[in-house]
Amino acid sequence: MRYVSSKSILSKNNGMNLYRGCSHGCIYCDSRSEVYGMKHEFEDIEVKENALQLLKRELMKRPKSMIGTGAMTDPYIPLENRLKFVRKSLELIDRYGFGFTCITKSDLVLRDLDLLKKINSNTKAVVQMTLTTFDDELCAILEPNVCNTSRRIEVLNILKDEEIPTVVWLCPILPYINDTTENINSILDSCIGADVKGIICYGMGLTLRKGNREYFYGKLDKHFPGLKDRYIKEFKNSYSIPSPNSGELMSLFIKKTSQNGILNNPREIFEYLNEFPQKSRQTKLI
């Protein structure tokens, strides 16, 4: 862990990253890519030590909107257990009358259920959960240091019972690993059962570029001997790595989500995530 001082915490679109780097160990993580210019080891988490002061200052000046986190680093990494930067951010977001959404793979989000419910009662809180494989044993290989899929589905159902809306990221789908009809069907059935609002899927496949490609291939050598050579032969140095089953799986995805009233168009889902409800409340200027 390392502390840094930052000049700002919110992007122009109200996204924030309290941490940089991650310890979940997902073998496919795009955030490892060199294009993001990280100057330290990915697992050596960078903490923005003045993030909370910056957030308070920026929330006092900005118009009410949704605040999002998790696009680059899962906000609920184990370090959050100790530092509680996300929880303290939620307290500020609630205090100043903003909405909140996050992307995570962790059941640690349930620790903050009380604050999510408060925010959702006044504005809007949406939890986005990533699901890649229904098989918990495979999940332990693909995403080794975070709760398994079964637990994430439990979290989605708890959030449903607490009336917190949810969105699922169905990605990445790795060719010759989790790109099966059985896997996609099982994940979709779980999402239907949890009454998710939408499922984001940009196609059945993954992306690779310098930095995350080398890490991913190293893990293929360790866990799926021979598969790296197949990737290199079929996909060479392509950024986009589509599943050979993409057409069939996307047809299944579109059909099943449409039949069950689940949003499946990324543009419409992001419009929903970014929409700030006009609910009346008294902002607490404390």
Rank of each mutant, 00 (worst) to 15 (best):
L170A: 06
D107R: 09
D114N: 08
E154T: 10
S106G: 09
A140Q: 08
V167I: 12
L115S: 11
T149Q: 06
C139E: 14
N120V: 09
K160R: 15
T104V: 13
D112V: 11
C102N: 10
E137Q: 08
R151A: 00
T166Q: 11
T133P: 01
L159W: 08
T104I: 11
L170W: 03
L174V: 13
I158N: 02
L159I: 02
S106L: 02
S106V: 03
S150M: 02
V168R: 04
A125P: 08
S106H: 05
V167L: 06
L108V: 03
I164Y: 09
W169D: 14
I141Y: 06
D107W: 07
A125F: 07
T132V: 03
D161R: 15
S106I: 03
D114V: 01
C102E: 05
S121R: 12
T166D: 09
T104L: 11
T130F: 01
N120D: 10
C171P: 06
V146R: 10
N122P: 01
I141D: 04
T132K: 03
I119D: 13
P165Q: 03
E163V: 15
E143R: 07
L138R: 10
E137A: 08
L159M: 03
T166K: 10
L115G: 14
V109R: 14
E163R: 15
L138A: 11
L159T: 05
V155G: 04
I153H: 10
K160S: 12
D112E: 10
V168L: 03
K105N: 04
L142F: 06
E137L: 02
L138S: 12
R111I: 08
L113F: 06
V168H: 05
D107K: 13
S150H: 04
V167R: 09
T123S: 14
T123H: 13
I141F: 04
T123D: 12
L110A: 12
N120E: 03
N122G: 07
I103C: 11
V126T: 11
N157S: 15
F100K: 09
T166H: 09
L159G: 04
D107I: 02
A140M: 02
L116F: 15
